[in-house]
Amino acid sequence: MSIQHFRVALIPFFAAFCLPVFAHPETLVKVKDAEDQLGARVGYIELDLNSGKILESFRPEERFPMMSTFKVLLCGAVLSRVDAGQEQLGRRIHYSQNDLVEYSPVTEKHLTDGMTVRELCSAAITMSDNTAANLLLTTIGGPKELTAFLHNMGDHVTRLDRWEPELNEAIPNDERDTTMPAAMATTLRKLLTGELLTLASRQQLIDWMEADKVAGPLLRSALPAGWFIADKSGAGERGSRGIIAALGPDGKPSRIVVIYTTGSQATMDERNRQIAEIGASLIKHW
């Protein structure tokens, strides 16, 4: 067993022997301040990774656009098919120029040779490549099948209805392509620590998230040296922004954090800054 596999296998073990965790309302004060600064709703939840206990939450059962955070769930569904012998990570998928959609920095470079399922998941999570996500959605049967996968996990809230990039439209009061912070946090925890996926697939999923290259201005910008984070960000229309993450000190994750916002007129930089400040408060009061 590799060191990384050992780390993920012992996530519940280490967490069980940690000192009790206590909620700190100071972080919620910052979440509410972010709402004021952005002029928009902000949803927040913080779960203990081992027990699933909610440590703090704000608007945990209000719907927010998922945006690209759905790509972690998508690759979880792909990995479940791999575990069941219905898919192979090494299978190569070929596609054409007509398949390319807006923001496809990886797939646009491989029109000639195609990409493997493993490479597509890596591109979808680490670079948020939209064509990679659409190609992977095709392998599982489309958005409705991802929703069905989530329902089978016990998540009857999260739903995907459309493809990239239309799913980022974020129309107010439109339930399409949305989740709730509580539902997303619980589902992410199941994917990373539950028995739904094999140990190898859980490790692969967290490795992809740990290698995320496009979430630097968010929670990662607030992390002290030595902290662990595996995350996936999302951005959408109407001032929408979000991030889902597993993080913790001492090089291992111990909490799940989900943050979503929508309806702001603020710039992307300002949305990023507010999420980073929430992260800084979380870490300060850990």
Results as ranks from 00 to 15, higher is better:
residue 213 K to H: 03
residue 86 Q to E: 08
residue 172 P to G: 10
residue 59 R to N: 00
residue 33 D to S: 09
residue 62 E to L: 11
residue 81 R to E: 07
residue 81 R to H: 00
residue 75 C to T: 07
residue 112 T to F: 08
residue 243 I to F: 03
residue 121 C to T: 08
residue 265 Q to N: 07
residue 197 L to T: 09
residue 121 C to S: 06
residue 175 E to T: 00
residue 227 W to N: 06
residue 114 G to Y: 05
residue 194 G to C: 02
residue 221 S to A: 04
residue 170 A to F: 06
residue 111 L to W: 10
residue 87 E to P: 12
residue 50 N to S: 09
residue 232 K to D: 15
residue 196 L to H: 13
residue 279 G to P: 10
residue 116 T to I: 07
residue 80 S to Y: 09
residue 161 D to T: 03
residue 240 S to K: 06
residue 93 I to F: 10
residue 245 A to G: 09
residue 265 Q to L: 13
residue 180 M to E: 07
residue 25 P to T: 05
residue 182 A to S: 04
residue 275 I to D: 10
residue 225 A to Y: 00
residue 88 Q to T: 14
residue 58 F to P: 13
residue 154 G to C: 15
residue 113 D to V: 02
residue 239 G to N: 06
residue 172 P to I: 00
residue 31 V to E: 07
residue 27 T to S: 09
residue 271 R to K: 00
residue 269 D to T: 09
residue 211 A to Q: 00
residue 140 I to D: 14
residue 108 E to N: 02
residue 29 V to S: 06
residue 139 T to E: 10
residue 229 I to Q: 04
residue 139 T to R: 04
residue 208 W to T: 05
residue 39 G to R: 14
residue 29 V to F: 13
residue 91 R to E: 09
residue 252 K to N: 01
residue 64 F to M: 09
residue 30 K to M: 15
residue 167 L to G: 06
residue 104 S to A: 12
residue 79 L to M: 05
residue 270 E to R: 10
residue 256 I to E: 12
residue 252 K to E: 02
residue 189 R to E: 07
residue 198 T to E: 07
residue 167 L to T: 12
residue 196 L to G: 12
residue 93 I to Y: 06
residue 249 P to N: 06
residue 208 W to C: 07
residue 259 I to H: 10
residue 156 H to G: 04
residue 68 S to K: 13
residue 146 L to W: 01
residue 139 T to D: 11
residue 101 V to Q: 08
residue 218 L to D: 12
residue 279 G to N: 14
residue 185 A to V: 01
residue 170 A to G: 05
residue 38 L to M: 12
residue 37 Q to W: 06
residue 190 K to T: 11
residue 178 T to L: 12
residue 125 I to C: 10
residue 266 A to T: 15
residue 34 A to M: 07
residue 170 A to L: 08
residue 174 D to I: 11
residue 50 N to K: 13
residue 205 L to W: 09
residue 122 S to R: 14
residue 282 L to Q: 01
residue 118 R to E: 14
residue 199 L to M: 05
residue 171 I to L: 07
residue 186 T to C: 13
residue 270 E to A: 14
residue 94 H to Y: 15
residue 67 M to Y: 13
residue 34 A to D: 14
residue 75 C to D: 10
residue 147 T to V: 15
residue 77 A to E: 05
residue 106 V to C: 15
residue 196 L to E: 05
residue 106 V to M: 09
residue 263 G to M: 09
residue 252 K to R: 01
residue 86 Q to S: 10
residue 120 L to M: 07
residue 105 P to I: 09
residue 141 G to N: 03
residue 187 T to N: 15
residue 186 T to D: 01
residue 140 I to T: 14
residue 283 I to D: 15
residue 149 F to C: 14
residue 145 E to T: 02
residue 89 L to C: 12
residue 114 G to W: 00
residue 267 T to N: 04
